[in-house]
C-alpha cells in the first residue's frame, strides 16, 4: 500500500515536469524561429514587436508572415503526432500512421477536385477536409458491413482499399488537369507546405483540432485498455466498438483539419509517437500530450529549415521524409525487443 502511493508520486511528478519542460522549450524555439528568416530580426526587435512597438516592417514580418506560419507548424505537428499516437494505440501497432484509414488519400482527392474545378483556396481546403472525413466514414461504414471477428484488421484492409480507390480517382484527375497550372499545384499539395498560410487559414482549423483532442484526452485510460485488443478490453468492461468509433472519429477530425491546411505531411505521425513513448512510456495519458508537444517542436524545426535552407521553399513532405525515414530505421535498429 505504502509502495503503491510512492509509485504514484514517482510516476506523476516527472511527467508534469516533462510536460512543463517541453512546453518551455517549445516557447523558446518558437521565439527563435520568429527571428530566423530572409529578413533577420534581433531578440530586442522581436520583443519590441510583441510588446506592440517596433518599426512597421518588423511588425509586418512578425505578425503577418512569421507568427501565422509558426503557429501553423506547431498546430500541424502537434495534431499529426497526437493522431498518430491514437491510431497506434488503437490498432495495437507502432507502425501505423494517421493516414492508415485513408484520411490523406481522401483529403488528397478532395483537394484535387477543388484544384481541378479552379475553386478558391478556402473552398479547396474545405473540399480536402470533407474528402478526408468522407473517406474514413466510408471505411467505417463498409467495415461495419463486413462480417469478420477481427475488427481492426477489417478496418485496416478496407482503409487500404478505399485509399487505393481515392488514389485512382486522383490520378485520373491529374491526367485531365491543366499541366501548366493545375498539375504543379496538385503535386505541391501532396508534398505539403505551410508557405501560403495566413491567420485566416489557421483560425478555422484550431477549434476543429481542439474538438478532436478533447475526446482523446477524456478517453485516455480507455485507449490504454483498448490497446490490449477487443476481447480483453470488452472483458475489462470497455464497450470496444463504440470507444474505437469515437477515437477514430476524433483522430480523423484532427488529421483532416490540418491536412486541409498543409497538404500531406508524412512521417510526423509515425515517428514522433515513438520518440514520445521512449520518453514517457506507453500510457496514453502521458503519451498524448508528450506526442503533441514533441510533434509541434519537430515540425517547427523542419518548417524553419524548409523556408531557410535554400533560395526556394523546400516542400515540407520532402524534408519530413528525408529526416524521418533514416531516423525511423535508427529507432528500429536500436529498438530492443518491444516498441519502447
Amino acid at each position: 500500500m505504502g509502495r503503491g502511493t510512492t509509485a504514484e508520486m514517482n510516476n506523476r511528478r516527472p511527467a508534469l515536469t516533462m510536460t512543463g519542460a517541453l512546453s518551455l522549450l517549445l516557447v523558446l524555439m518558437a521565439f527563435g524561429a520568429v527571428m530566423i528568416g530572409p529578413y533577420e530580426l534581433s531578440t530586442g526587435q522581436v520583443l519590441a514587436v510583441l510588446a506592440g512597438q517596433g518599426d512597421e516592417q518588423a511588425r509586418i514580418v512578425v505578425w503577418n508572415i512569421r507568427l501565422p506560419r509558426i503557429g501553423a507548424a506547431l498546430l500541424v505537428g502537434a495534431s499529426l503526432a497526437a493522431a498518430g499516437a491514437s491510431f497506434q494505440a488503437l490498432f495495437r501497432n507502432p507502425l501505423v500512421s494517421p493516414d492508415i484509414l485513408g484520411v490523406s488519400a481522401g483529403a488528397g482527392l478532395g483537394a484535387v477536385v477543388g484544384i481541378f474545378l479552379a475553386l478558391p483556396v478556402v473552398a479547396i481546403q474545405v473540399s480536402a477536409f470533407v474528402g478526408g472525413m468522407v473517406a474514413v466514414g466510408v471505411v467505417m461504414l463498409v467495415a461495419s458491413l463486413v462480417r469478420n471477428t477481427d475488427r481492426t484488421l477489417t478496418l485496416v484492409l478496407i482503409g487500404v482499399v478505399i485509399g487505393a480507390l481515392a488514389g485512382a480517382m486522383t490520378s485520373l484527375l491529374k491526367v485531365l488537369a491543366d499541366p501548366y497550372d493545375q498539375l504543379p499545384a496538385i503535386t505541391f499539395w501532396f508534398l505539403g507546405s505551410l508557405a501560403a498560410i495566413t491567420d485566416d487559414d489557421l483560425l478555422p482549423a484550431l477549434p476543429l483540432v481542439v474538438i478532436g483532442l478533447l475526446p482523446l484526452a477524456l478517453l485516455r485510460w480507455r485507449v490504454n485498455v483498448l490497446s490490449l485488443g477487443d476481447e480483453e478490453a470488452s472483458s475489462l468492461g470497455v464497450e470496444a466498438g463504440r470507444t474505437r468509433f469515437f477515437v477514430i472519429a476524433a483522430a480523423t477530425l484532427i488529421t483532416a483539419s490540418v491536412t486541409a491546411l498543409a497538404g500531406v505531411v508524412g512521417w510526423v505521425g509515425l515517428v514522433i509517437p515513438h520518440i514520445a513513448r521512449m520518453i514517457v512510456g506507453p500510457g496514453f495519458g502521458r503519451l498524448l500530450p508528450a506526442s503533441a508537444l514533441i510533434g509541434a517542436g519537430y515540425l517547427l524545426i523542419v518548417d524553419t529549415l524548409a523556408r531557410t535552407i535554400a533560395q526556394i521553399e523546400v516542400p515540407l513532405g520532402v524534408l519530413t521524409a528525408v529526416i524521418g525515414a533514416p531516423f525511423f530505421v535508427w529507432l528500429l535498429a536500436r529498438g530492443r525487443r518491444g516498441w519502447s
Binding site: 490497446s227 470488452s234 472483458s235 468492461g237 464497450e239 470496444a240
Partner: peptide
C-alpha cells in the same frame, strides 16, 4: 460490458502486448 466485467473477470492465456 461494465456490468458484466463487475461480475466475471477473464484471464486470457499469457500474451505479449504491443506496448511496454
Amino acid at each position: 460490458r461494465a456490468e458484466i466485467a463487475r461480475r466475471i473477470a477473464y484471464v486470457p492465456q499469457a500474451h505479449a502486448p504491443p506496448f511496454p
